[in-house]
Amino acid sequence: MDFQLTDDQRALKAGVRELLAARFGRERLRAAVDEGPRLDRALWRELGEAGFFALRLPEAEGGVGLGLPEAVLAFEEAGRVLLPGPLIATHLAAGVVDGAATGETVVTAVDGGGLVEWLAEADVVRGEATGAEPLRSVDPLTPLHRVPVSGGAGLADVRPMGSTGALPTAPLTSLFTAAEQLGTAARACETAVQHARTREQFGQPIGAFQAVKHLCAQMLVRVELARAAVYAAAVTADPVDIAAARLLADEAAVRGARDCLQVHGGMGFTWESDVHLCLKRAWTRTQRTGSATESEELLAADLVSGVGR
């Protein structure tokens, strides 16, 4: 057993982080918010070139030939910078939909939760989206449509299977969502700590006050627990592990962003601060297939089925 990142995995994570820092740093994020939800096609193709979408496609099919753990690390980094777009749907379409792997084609999908992200901007929609109605999305960088009847598969349709069998879309979507939430949660924690170290009140950094300190400590605890769960689920590819990972990652992201907002005081309530972008994205992701109710029910069923260890 060696449940730590390998050197290659570390390098891959650092590489994705570097690419995203260069191409989707804070200024780009704010510009995207100001421009409204439009996909940056050039960036999409760059992601394609870097292998983001073809990461798990076999080398024989022109992919990178890596596995779920590597994909999870990439999605974690995407979540950290709040990278917009139907990343998961396009990644899952690689090798199935022409041009998805290279980033030429932007693919979205009808989610089991009954929503479609980026419907108007996507070239291809997987699932039945007729009659989809737009809603005014709370997240400025995730346009949403509601579909009358959910066309996507939910977690309940999935049976446990070993790491060898291919997982259906629903648990994969949930796993990658968990990875994105993990990245956002880590960012929220770092942002809060950064602010707590520099902002002074009563003649000392606010991070010296225990009430603030403990909020930050709790953020880290949630991040580290979620990290262990998400990485393990990527290794085992077990739907019950994925449900656990998703639950903890949703919690780490949403509560982390909330606490981060609190640590920022009035500044945290402004449009100008990035904190609300973390929170809104985290909220949006919680609605995807594998939501808290669904995951908790799956985990409960596992307790009485005697399947899980």
Binding site: M1, F3, Q4, E224, L225, A226, R227, A228, A229, Y231, A232, V240, D241, A243, A244, A245, L247, L248, A292, T293, S295, E296, E297, L298, L299, A300, A301, D302, L303, G308
Partner: peptide, 20 residues
């Protein structure tokens, strides 16, 4: 039921954190 499901997630994750 959901509360127990949540605890299942919690202890699975604590085991993974131990392995980590």
């Amino acid at each position: 039921r959901r509360r127990l499901g949540g605890l299942n997630a919690e202890f699975r994750a604590l085991w993974r954190l131990t392995q980590w």
